[in-house]
Design a binder for these strands. Structure first.
Lengths: 193, 193
DNA sequence: CGACACATGTAACACGTTACATGATTTG
DNA sequence: CAAATCATGTAACGTGTTACATGTGTCG
């Protein structure tokens, strides 16, 4: 959903063509979130189909700029006015990984946590270095960078917390599926592993 | 990517069929991350095609359980052993929204921040209430809940920080596209708005 | 000339969601 | 009996990625 709205937001600055939009997006996010150029064109096509943008005539240099429509402007205003909800967010892979790690037999949870913390701390260090180096950077890029720093810090705190909880309470006995059919001697489970 | 690995992790407990896998996944995440049942079946098909799981004969009750293969076990072990990297993570919609808000003409950034903070604080309150109510819940579900609390707290902190930065430095003049072609009096930009 | 940046596109595929179809079993 | 739950699937569509095709312009 965010690429669609991002393109609308960029077009609110004025008409632009695909290649230019990608450059503007990547510039705003400090080139850390690369935007696939193919997706820009397909998204522009969908936006045009939905009448949120309109194609301008191809210019002398073979560029095909688009302009945002009034309908597109309303759509964009709605995006800015409505908060990102819990349901909008994708499932977090790390959270799922650890939640499943504690109930999967044979997984060294402490090791999973330790490896992730190392990786996240390294990332955090890199972000911090970048922030110090580019203190005069564009506001948008600075916000993105700081967002990633806040998130990485929270992740490390959660990892530390989880490590402590797991160490304190221990892992639950990994019980297999409580199938409500087939109670009689589930061989499949016992023969496994 | 996480549904694929989640199913492998659940199958590591023992053979199970689609419907059962969905229930187990949702139970582990406290029913906050619903898993589409259709996707379970299509993912199982892909996993079977890639020989990470194998279908067991349909039983008397018409259920079609799957079993993880050795190859699937290796794949799963690799998932647990490798940290989630920055590149694996999806673009964060809120971060993009605010980064673009500060460079889009006519956007009330303070208002966007305020609305998001209200929504996130409400969410945080709900999570905290849940945590207090279900303190005896399954470990996995508690970890998921705490993860969401840590993330929501970080988000609020970032919003506060961003609000302060924007208030202090002010917004940059929203300059249109610096097209390196067509310098001559970009009418399209001026006629817009 | 050859490499690289600019510029537009298509194809194939993975992943995710919503909705629909079908049938068996369970329960009020 | 009717509704809900159990159980398996397909179709359509949006979103995202990688890879490929094609052509122009620029620069060493």
């Amino acid at each position: 959903m965010s690429v669609k709205h991002s393109l609308l937001a960029l077009l609110e600055r004025g008409p632009a063509y695909g290649y230019q939009l990608r450059a503007a997006f990547e510039s705003a996010t400090g080139n850390t979130w690369p935007l696939n150029i193919g997706q820009v064109y397909t998204t522009l096509n969908r936006l045009e189909r939905d009448e949120l943008v309109e194609a301008l005539p191809e210019n002398e240099s073979g560029q095909r700029p688009y302009r945002i429509t009034d309908s597109g402007r309303r759509q964009l205003a709605g995006w800015f006015a409505s908060p990102v909800q819990a349901a909008d967010r994708p499932r977090d892979e790390l959270t799922i990984k650890l939640a499943l790690a504690v109930t999967t037999p044979g997984v060294d949870v402490a090791d999973v946590i330790q490896r992730q913390r190392t990786a996240t701390l390294r990332l955090l260090q890199e972000y911090t270095r970048l922030k110090a180096a580019e203190d005069d950077a564009e506001l948008a890029w600075r916000l993105v960078l700081e967002s990633m720093i806040f998130r990485a810090e929270a992740e490390v705190r959660w990892l530390d917390h989880t490590e402590a909880v797991v160490a304190r309470t221990g892992l639950p006995a990994p019980s297999p599926f409580a199938s409500h059919v087939e109670q009689p001697e589930t061989e499949t489970v016992r023969e496994h592993r």
